[in-house]
Structure formats: C-alpha cells, structure tokens
Amino acid sequence: MNMFYYEPKTFQEACDLLNKYQDDAKLIAGGQSLMILLRQKVVVPEHLINLKNIKEGAYIKEEGGELKIGALTTHRQIEKSPLVREKLPAFAEVFSGIGSVQVRNWGTIGGNLAHSDPAGDLAPILMVLGARVRVISKSNSNEMPLESFITGYLETKLRASEMLQEIIIPLSKAKSGMAYEKESVRAGDMAMASAAAFIEIGSKGITRAKVVVGAVGEMPIRLENLEKELQGQGSKGELHIDPKFDQSIIRMDPYVSKEYKYEISKVKLRNVIQTAFERAKQA
C-alpha cells in the first residue's frame, strides 16, 4: 500500500493534517514503540505524520508553579534537565531505568504517554504527581488529568483528530516526596510490576497521598483506598502500610504468575510509600 509522509513544522500543521486524514493517519514522534509495529506491518497507516520537526514541541519550563513539558521533549532531555533535577529530582531519576540511552535519546514523553503501555514507567509517576495533559486538535485545546487520559491497554482518550501537546506537572508547595520503583528482569526492561507514590506531610502526618500500581492491569491504577488509609498517618514517624488491592485487576503475564505479580506489587508499593514518606520528611 502506498504510504504518504508528512513533516509538519508546527502543532497547527500537524493538527490540520490529522483533521484531514483522521483515522487514516498515524503520528510518529520518537517511534521507539511504533517502528516495531510498522515493520511488522501490524500498523499500516496511509498517512504517516512525523512530529520530530515540530521545534516548538520540545521544551521544559516552569510557569505558574507548574512544570510544563512539551510532548516532543525526549526522555534524555528531561533526564538531563537541570530544572527537572532541581524541582523533581525523583522524577529525573526514573529515566535511567527507561530502555537504553539510545532509546531515551530519541523517544519522547508524549509518545510514551500516547502509546499507553500499561508497563510504561512514566504514567504511574506522572499520575501520582497529579499531572495533566494538554490535548489539541485543529480548533480545540483541552487539559485533562493524565489519570482520565489513559483509558486502557494502549488506549487513551485521544480522538483521531487529536494529539498531545504538553504535559503539566503541578509542583507541590507542601513538604512532599515522590518515589517510583519497578520490578523488571533487567534494568531498562518493561516492568512486571511497578508502583509510584506521592506524599505530602503536614504537622499531623500525611495530608495527601497518591499511590499508583502499574504494569499489572490494563493501565496504571490509582489505589484510593490505600491513599485514604495513609491519610493522617506518620505523625509519629512510623507508617502502617498494608498495600493490598483488588487482585482482579491483574492481567495475565506469560512469564510470571498473577500471584507473583500481586506479591511483588505489594513489595513495591510498600517501598515507594516508605521512600516517598522519608523524602517528604526530608523536604
């Protein structure tokens, strides 16, 4: 089949193309996941739109107490960004576990989120940080919480004519800490289980907790019960963490059992909550 190729220079141009070709078009940014599907001919778009030349799409900036990252910013740019290292050191740390240097050099944050692999590393962290995404189309621009953006296995709220423009991470003013851990066979592999936690503390212990378990279900999942349990804990320095959750969300994995996934998730959850808490105390 004939494939047409475009290189928009601006988001507007890209949206125009999307608007024109809708479902027949496929966006490619870093393509670190898509290239494999293209080669295997599992995805055969009629119109391939390369976003890499949208220069306005790659940036990291602080604005109104929020960190804004352009969707086309590469992992490596975020990993090395002094701003990110200063504002969200625990976030910058995570990148060394994503793929390899080569992949981080070319893969983008927007691509990672839009691909919506439940084993991806970024979504759980961004979810606990309360990140929002800016979704644009030819004539619209909306913000939504990342949590509602991701809807399932490789699925998001993006419609055919829409694309990701920006990721917005609110910077907490409270004493807070964040942690992410994944269990993977090798460093850089896709997680078999992962967990992220964000904790704010006040004088009476934990004032706000966000906890996400990743790589076990069809998407990263917030554990609100656990968050509630954590509320108010830790005023005396000790946490009582019972990280159990509804096991029915766990999906089959060809290499490890559901039981192991569950057990390991609990270990990871306990670890990240504890670490986030420690970090919050030291903040």
Partner: peptide, 25 residues
C-alpha cells in the same frame, strides 16, 4: 534469566524484549 516460554508449542518470547539476555548491567 534465559528461558524460552511456550504456549501450545508456540514461542511466547521470540524477541530480545522478552527473552532476557544479560546486558552489561
């Protein structure tokens, strides 16, 4: 690490993503 996994005789992990060869790490 290394183990070829099967389901009804079909290899489940016929790639370097899922068949884990140790890296320098």
């Amino acid at each position: 690490y290394e183990e070829m996994a099967f389901d009804n005789g079909a290899v489940l992990n016929p790639n370097f993503m899922d068949y884990k060869i140790p890296t320098s790490r």
